[in-house]
Structure formats: C-alpha cells, structure tokens
C-alpha cells in the first residue's frame, strides 16, 4: 500500500511512489484534455455505427453508411476507363497523319503507351526500350521487322514466333549445334560477318579467314541476310552491316549465334489489347527515338474493326 501525501510546494497529492527521494506529483489531467479524450470515445462509437469496423467470424460489421473501399476502387476504375474510352476509340481509327497533326492525341498515346509498356513489355525490353541480350533495343533505329508505326503495330498484334496464326516467323539455323557447318567454317564465316560490319573497326577481322568465310556466307547466309549483309525485313533477317548485335557484340558472342541460331519469342497481343491500346503502344515504341516514317497508312485490320472489349489499363 502506497502512502498518498500532499506536496507542500504545489499543494498537489503525490502518487506515493518514491525513487531515490524523488516523489511524483499526481497532477490531474487538464480538464480540456479530459473532455477531448471523452469526445474521442464518443466519436469512436459513432464511427462503429457508421463505418465498417469490427471483424465478426469471417466477415465484419458493415456500418450503416455502406462504405466499401473495394467498391470505391471498382467505381473509380470504371469511371477512369469510361473517361479514357473516347480517346482510345479516336486513336484506334486515327491515321498516322491524324496523329502527327494532333498534339493532344500524341500526348495521350505517349502516356497510355508508356503505361501499357511498363506493365507488359518492360520486363523483357527494359524501361524506355533499353533492350537486353536477346531482347531487341526498341529505342534505337535498328529494326528487324520494320520501324514504321504500321510495322510495329503489326508486330505487336501477331507477335514473333508466337502462337498467332499470322505470327512473324523467322528461323536462323543452328549451324553449329545441328552440325550444318564445321567449327572451322563457323569461325571463318564469323570473321567474314565481322569484316562486312561496322564492328570491324574494333574487332579487326582476320582477312584470310574472312575471305574463306565469304564462300560459306554466300552459300548459307546470303539468301536471308543478303549478299552484302543488308538483311531482309520481310524475312526478319537482321542487317549484319551495323554494329548492333541482338545476342552480344563480342567475337565469341557473334560466333555463338552462328552456332546456335537463337530466336526469341514475342507474344501476340491482339487478343489482350483493344485496337486503340495497340495503336498507342505502337506509337509509344515508335516515338522512343528510332521510329521510321510510315510508307503507307496502316491497313485496316480485324482488330481495329472489333469493338473495344477491354482496356489494357485494367
């Protein structure tokens, strides 16, 4: 039992606790503070009645106001999609010229495209289309299947080596793994490829090997990549003249690609995005910096005629 006593200086009772001769005053709470405290209790009770508050079993008290965060989010999303639908529709039917002349449309496409790109494409192609070994850089001006908005949009729609019936297909033979060429021949053709590319400046192709490789190249590679290595976009055969290498730029990595003939898969997005979203995405990729002018206005496609079914921003 503690002894309560009155402090003679302040006239306040002490709590009776004592530490090393120090005693604690039992100063009452200020009245206003106490009132605020009671008010918060009252407010809490009102809150329990109005708002979702207590867990019961596997549910909770719903509150008389019917507030639900889940419903709010759904409603907000719906409103957002409704607000954007008109713009996506407009975009789906816009020609390249329409887009070029309409800054509002461009800004919308850039923003929408960036958002969709971030959610769906960035994992492989990197933020801003930075690319990674095996995943082409989208920000540069080197295109395997074409860099106009129409070309990009088509690639997006059907994919590459995807399960889409119209998928863009190309296959580089695995000259080493499948023993189509000897190791010596692969080395020679690698030197030749380096010698016709801008990489020659830094890799210094062996002239003798390259001249032997020229014959192999003419027999095995020129059909797709072209006699001078310019590549062929209709076949998806990359140009070998520049210094941009999908699977790595070192001598060993170039050789390895001749041996393995690797080819990545890009999914077809036609089923997943509506036409407006596809167009916005194509515009965004085109706008990253290396886009090429459209030869002809983009063709009408089944995807464009289809009604807007879902938004990619969901």
């Amino acid at each position: 039992m503690t002894k309560r006593e009155r402090d003679h200086v302040s006239g306040t009772e002490t709590t009776g606790h004592e530490w090393d001769g120090l005693r604690e005053l039992d100063t009452p709470l200020p009245r206003w503070w106490l009132h605020v405290f009671y008010a918060t209790i009252a407010i809490a009770i009102v809150y329990w009645i109005l708002m979702p508050a207590w867990p019961i079993g596997n549910g909770y008290t719903k509150g008389v106001l019917g507030w639900s965060d889940r419903a709010n989010v759904a409603r907000d999303l719906q409103a957002l999609e409704a607000g954007r639908a008109a713009m996506f529709q407009r975009f789906a039917t816009a020609t390249a010229a329409d887009i070029a002349n309409d800054p509002a449309l461009q800004e919308f496409a850039r923003a929408a495209g960036e958002s969709v790109f971030g959610d769906n494409c960035r994992t492989c192609h990197g933020a801003g289309g930075a690319g990674a070994p095996g995943y082409p850089v989208l920000a540069d001006d080197v295109w395997i299947w074409g860099g106009s908005i129409a070309d990009i949009e088509h690639t997006l729609r059907v994919g590459i080596r995807s399960d889409h019936p119209q998928a863009r297909m190309s296959a580089m033979p695995a000259f080493g793994r499948d023993r189509l060429l000897t190791s010596q021949e692969i080395g020679d053709v690698t030197e030749f490829v380096i010698s016709i590319s801008s990489a020659n400046a830094r890799l210094n192709a062996d002239a003798n090997a390259a001249s032997r490789g020229a014959t192999v190249y003419a027999q095995q590679c020129a059909l797709c990549h072209g006699g001078a290595g310019a590549g062929d976009r209709t076949l998806g055969a990359p140009s070998l003249r520049d210094d941009v290498w999908l699977y790595g730029a070192s001598r060993d990595e170039i050789r390895r690609q001749v041996e393995l003939g690797r080819g990545g898969v890009m999914p077809a997005w036609e089923q997943r995005f509506d036409a407006g979203t596809l167009r916005a995405l194509a515009y965004y990729v085109h706008d990253l910096g290396g886009g090429e002018p459209d030869a002809t206005p983009p063709q009408a496609s089944p995807a464009e005629a289809a009604p807007v079914q879902q938004s990619a921003l969901r």
Binding site: G128, V137, D140, V142
Partner: peptide, 18 residues
C-alpha cells in the same frame, strides 16, 4: 534527361541521348 536507356547506339555507330 531520360535515364533509361542511358544512351542508344544507332545503326551507323553514332550515339543518341533523349
């Protein structure tokens, strides 16, 4: 300055920043 990609190598060997 765009931070990704930090720079882009173009077909003719030149470099681009955005």
């Amino acid at each position: 300055r765009d931070r990704s990609p930090p720079f882009v190598r173009l077909a003719d060997g030149s470099l681009r920043n955005d």
